[in-house]
Simulated assay, not measured.
Amino acid sequence: MPNWVRAAHVDDVPADCGLELVIAQRIIGLYRVEDQFFAMDGICAHQGGPVAKGATCGKVVTCPWHGWQYDVTTGKHELSEIRQQTFPIERRGDELFIDMEVPGT
Protein backbone atom coordinates (compact mmCIF):
# COMPACT_ATOMS: atom_id res chain seq x y z
CA MET A 1 0.00 0.00 0.00
CA PRO A 2 1.48 3.39 -0.97
CA ASN A 3 2.77 5.68 1.75
CA TRP A 4 2.64 9.15 0.16
CA VAL A 5 4.62 11.78 2.08
CA ARG A 6 4.74 15.46 1.18
CA ALA A 7 8.27 16.22 0.02
CA ALA A 8 8.38 19.78 -1.27
CA HIS A 9 6.74 22.59 -3.19
CA VAL A 10 7.71 22.51 -6.88
CA ASP A 11 9.44 25.89 -6.49
CA ASP A 12 11.73 24.37 -3.81
CA VAL A 13 13.43 22.22 -6.46
CA PRO A 14 15.63 24.33 -8.77
CA ALA A 15 15.65 23.51 -12.48
CA ASP A 16 18.28 20.91 -13.42
CA CYS A 17 19.35 20.63 -9.81
CA GLY A 18 18.90 18.36 -6.81
CA LEU A 19 17.54 18.92 -3.34
CA GLU A 20 18.53 16.81 -0.34
CA LEU A 21 15.64 15.93 1.98
CA VAL A 22 15.12 13.73 5.02
CA ILE A 23 11.84 11.87 4.68
CA ALA A 24 10.75 8.98 6.89
CA GLN A 25 14.27 8.83 8.37
CA ARG A 26 15.84 8.42 4.91
CA ILE A 27 18.02 10.81 2.94
CA ILE A 28 16.39 11.38 -0.43
CA GLY A 29 17.57 13.32 -3.47
CA LEU A 30 14.73 15.15 -5.22
CA TYR A 31 15.53 16.24 -8.76
CA ARG A 32 13.91 18.36 -11.44
CA VAL A 33 14.78 17.41 -15.02
CA GLU A 34 13.04 19.84 -17.34
CA ASP A 35 9.45 19.78 -16.02
CA GLN A 36 9.59 16.31 -14.46
CA PHE A 37 10.51 15.36 -10.91
CA PHE A 38 12.41 12.28 -9.69
CA ALA A 39 13.35 10.93 -6.26
CA MET A 40 16.34 8.69 -5.52
CA ASP A 41 18.20 7.38 -2.48
CA GLY A 42 20.47 10.25 -1.44
CA ILE A 43 23.33 8.10 -0.12
CA CYS A 44 25.88 6.94 -2.69
CA ALA A 45 26.25 3.16 -3.09
CA HIS A 46 30.04 3.53 -3.31
CA GLN A 47 31.07 4.73 0.15
CA GLY A 48 28.01 6.45 1.56
CA GLY A 49 28.71 9.88 0.14
CA PRO A 50 26.04 12.59 -0.07
CA VAL A 51 25.02 11.99 -3.69
CA ALA A 52 21.88 14.09 -3.14
CA LYS A 53 24.17 17.12 -2.68
CA GLY A 54 26.06 16.38 -5.89
CA ALA A 55 26.18 18.47 -9.04
CA THR A 56 23.43 17.69 -11.54
CA CYS A 57 23.81 18.01 -15.29
CA GLY A 58 20.68 17.07 -17.20
CA LYS A 59 19.56 13.77 -15.73
CA VAL A 60 22.95 12.81 -14.25
CA VAL A 61 23.99 13.54 -10.66
CA THR A 62 27.64 13.22 -9.58
CA CYS A 63 28.50 12.26 -6.02
CA PRO A 64 30.81 14.96 -4.59
CA TRP A 65 33.02 12.44 -2.74
CA HIS A 66 34.34 10.17 -5.51
CA GLY A 67 32.57 11.18 -8.70
CA TRP A 68 30.16 8.27 -9.04
CA GLN A 69 27.41 9.26 -11.46
CA TYR A 70 23.79 8.14 -11.51
CA ASP A 71 20.85 8.67 -13.83
CA VAL A 72 18.27 10.28 -11.53
CA THR A 73 15.40 9.05 -13.68
CA THR A 74 16.29 5.37 -13.15
CA GLY A 75 18.82 5.31 -10.29
CA LYS A 76 21.27 3.41 -12.52
CA HIS A 77 25.00 4.00 -12.08
CA GLU A 78 26.43 5.28 -15.35
CA LEU A 79 29.20 2.64 -15.68
CA SER A 80 27.82 -0.48 -13.98
CA GLU A 81 24.65 -2.35 -13.12
CA ILE A 82 24.46 -0.78 -9.65
CA ARG A 83 21.16 0.94 -9.01
CA GLN A 84 20.11 3.42 -6.38
CA GLN A 85 16.59 2.97 -5.05
CA THR A 86 14.14 5.33 -6.71
CA PHE A 87 10.77 6.41 -5.39
CA PRO A 88 7.53 7.23 -7.22
CA ILE A 89 6.61 10.92 -7.20
CA GLU A 90 3.17 12.39 -7.53
CA ARG A 91 2.51 16.04 -8.23
CA ARG A 92 -0.64 17.42 -6.62
CA GLY A 93 -1.01 20.98 -7.82
CA ASP A 94 2.25 22.65 -6.80
CA GLU A 95 3.10 20.08 -4.11
CA LEU A 96 5.30 16.99 -4.58
CA PHE A 97 4.64 13.74 -2.76
CA ILE A 98 6.97 10.72 -2.61
CA ASP A 99 5.79 7.16 -2.07
CA MET A 100 7.99 5.92 0.79
CA GLU A 101 6.52 2.41 0.84
CA VAL A 102 9.19 -0.16 1.64
CA PRO A 103 9.20 -2.86 -1.09
CA GLY A 104 8.13 -6.28 0.15
CA THR A 105 6.11 -5.04 3.13
Score class of each variant (00 low, 15 high):
1 M>A: 15
2 P>S: 13
4 W>D: 09
5 V>H: 10
6 R>I: 12
10 V>I: 15
10 V>F: 11
11 D>M: 13
12 D>V: 07
14 P>F: 09
16 D>I: 11
18 G>R: 04
19 L>W: 02
20 E>W: 13
20 E>T: 15
21 L>Y: 10
21 L>R: 02
21 L>P: 03
22 V>W: 14
24 A>P: 12
25 Q>A: 11
26 R>C: 10
27 I>G: 04
31 Y>K: 07
32 R>L: 06
33 V>Y: 04
41 D>P: 09
42 G>S: 11
42 G>F: 12
42 G>I: 06
47 Q>E: 14
48 G>A: 03
48 G>P: 08
49 G>E: 04
50 P>M: 10
50 P>E: 11
52 A>F: 11
52 A>E: 13
52 A>M: 13
53 K>W: 09
54 G>I: 05
57 C>R: 14
58 G>N: 06
60 V>T: 11
61 V>P: 01
61 V>L: 00
62 T>H: 07
64 P>M: 02
64 P>Q: 02
66 H>E: 00
66 H>L: 07
67 G>M: 03
67 G>W: 06
70 Y>F: 15
71 D>Q: 01
77 H>E: 00
81 E>G: 02
82 I>R: 00
82 I>Q: 04
84 Q>A: 03
84 Q>W: 09
87 F>N: 00
90 E>F: 11
91 R>T: 09
91 R>Y: 05
95 E>D: 15
95 E>M: 14
96 L>D: 04
96 L>T: 07
97 F>Q: 03
97 F>I: 09
98 I>C: 02
99 D>M: 09
99 D>Y: 09
105 T>C: 12
